[in-house]
């Protein structure tokens, strides 16, 4: 009936072991705030079901795969003790291996100003930043911070930690936008 594949692949990855224990109670979905705050289609329960039912393409394109930030609020609440974020991370890993791209606006490093101090790599909760040697115009072969978009969740901690202002989060939460919103309020005439 089903093509063997996705569920087995997920089970084989660390975190995905107890996948089939899910009895669809919905605790994870309601404990998580992503559905009510960000994305109405977000639903870990349904993603687990999709994986079990071998719905490969659907689970890769599902927002749940990309938006789960592994906060693990659901894990201690799960009556079946399924490490849900582990399952989702496993799905995401397989999706990335299959060439899928995250819809998030992930962190961007300005490699011309990066001094490779490693502070961003230190604070990143997802270990998405590594210090690697890159050949750059004007700077030669030099170590700089590199962001893996497959792991980055766009929380912005690296941006707050960076001392040389070389790492930024595009779109809504960029340094410029936040500072601008503060100044627009305090100084409506616009000294900016």
């Amino acid at each position: 009936m089903f093509k063997s594949g996705l569920a087995d692949e997920v089970r084989a990855l660390p975190g995905g072991e107890n996948l089939e224990m899910c009895y669809s109670c919905g605790t994870c979905t309601s404990k998580c705030m992503i559905q009510q705050k960000l994305e109405p289609e977000y639903n870990p329960r349904r993603l687990l079901r999709m994986v079990m039912m071998e719905m490969r393409e659907e689970s890769f394109s599902n927002p749940t795969t990309w938006l789960c930030s592994s906060c693990d609020l659901c894990y201690p609440a799960c009556p079946q003790q399924i490490h849900i974020s582990g399952v989702i991370t496993a799905v995401k890993k397989i999706a990335v291996q299959n060439g899928q791209k995250t819809p998030l606006h992930t962190a961007v490093v300005d490699q011309q100003t990066c001094v490779a101090c490693g502070l961003c790599a230190e604070v990143c909760p997802y270990e998405a930043i590594t210090i690697e040697t890159r050949k750059l115009p004007y700077r030669g072969s030099i170590p700089v911070a590199v962001v893996d978009p497959g792991l980055c969740m766009a929380c912005g901690m690296c941006g707050a930690a960076c001392r040389s202002n070389s790492i930024s989060i595009p779109a809504d939460y960029s340094d410029e936008n936040v500072v601008e919103s503060i100044w627009k309020w305090l100084n409506p005439e616009g000294a900016l």
């Binding site: 109670c25 919905g26 605790t27 994870c28 309601s30 404990k31 329960r45 659901c74 609440a77």
Partner: peptide, 20 residues
């Protein structure tokens, strides 16, 4: 749906059930 959380209004002591 298995409720994940009950929150309480501290004045009325009414309860709010969060569930999927």
């Amino acid at each position: 749906g298995r409720p994940a959380m009950i929150t309480e209004d501290s004045e009325t002591h009414n309860l709010f059930i969060h569930t999927e």
